[in-house]
Amino acid sequence: MSSGPPRRLAIDHDDYHAEHVGRTADGRQFFLTRPFDPGTHEGNDGQEFVALFLFDADGCFLEAKIDAFGPRETMDRAAAKAAYDGRLRELGDVTFTRIEIEPFAVERFGTTIGLIPRAPDDDDDRWWVTIEPGDYMAFTEPWDSGDYDT
């Protein structure tokens, strides 16, 4: 049985989905990532995004800067890479390191985007926090482990 959703969760820097997490020179925490809507709903072709999530030094959510690029099959990959690289550059001097941040959700482009808590389905299940859309990173207790499932 799980104790409930986290107030904060840790994400350790790695060479995969958490390649660009860390702190800016002024102490803010950041997470640059590529959420995606796989387009599994009727009439939905999906959507690829570049998302920069910013948090204060204590891990409180500040803002989300999100760019949309349309379905993976037809997106302009060069434009998506340029947006990703530009978001990283706009942070200035950064240190790639572990971050400890709060879950959050924002609505953009008709999609809920963020680190979203998911309640257990039953008493034997546990709380999860997943990156949405795309559910490509999933966190569970212990919330301070810094690890995630893909």
Rank of each mutant, 00 (worst) to 15 (best):
D15R: 15
M75I: 02
I11T: 04
P142V: 14
P38E: 08
L62I: 15
F139A: 12
T112K: 10
G110A: 12
L52N: 13
P6V: 10
E63N: 06
F49W: 06
I116N: 03
R87D: 00
G92I: 00
T24K: 05
R108G: 01
E19P: 00
W127D: 05
H17M: 04
L32N: 07
D12R: 13
M137D: 07
W128Q: 12
Q47W: 04
P103T: 01
E73L: 08
D124H: 09
W127G: 05
S145M: 12
L88W: 00
A79L: 08
Q29A: 04
A78I: 12
I113W: 02
E100I: 08
P142A: 14
D45I: 02
P6G: 09
L115D: 05
H17R: 08
P103Q: 04
G46Y: 09
R108P: 00
P6I: 08
G134P: 01
E107K: 05
T112R: 15
A18I: 02
G4P: 11
R87P: 00
D121L: 09
R34N: 12
M137P: 06
T140M: 09
T111D: 07
F30W: 04
A68L: 06
D147M: 12
G134A: 03
W143K: 15
R87M: 03
I131V: 15
G46F: 08
V129H: 01
K81F: 02
R89P: 00
I131Q: 08
P35A: 05
F30H: 04
R77D: 06
G59N: 14
P120H: 03
G39K: 04
E73R: 14
A25Q: 14
E141C: 08
D144C: 08
I66W: 03
F69S: 12
R72Y: 15
R108L: 03
P35Y: 01
L54K: 09
G22F: 05
R23D: 01
S145L: 12
A25M: 11
F109G: 03
E100R: 13
W127R: 08
E107P: 00
G43R: 10
K65C: 09
L54P: 04
T112V: 13
R7C: 08
R8K: 15
D45M: 06
F55M: 14
A79C: 03
G134Y: 00
F55K: 15
G146K: 10
V21N: 13
F104D: 10
E102D: 09
W128F: 06
P6Y: 02
A10K: 10
I131T: 13
P5C: 07
P5S: 12
P142Y: 10
R77P: 00
A57L: 09
L9D: 04
D124P: 00
R87A: 05
A68S: 15
A138V: 13
R87N: 03
P103A: 06
Q29P: 05
A82Q: 02
P142C: 13
D124Y: 11
D67V: 05
R23P: 03
G146R: 10
Y16G: 05
G86S: 07
F53R: 13
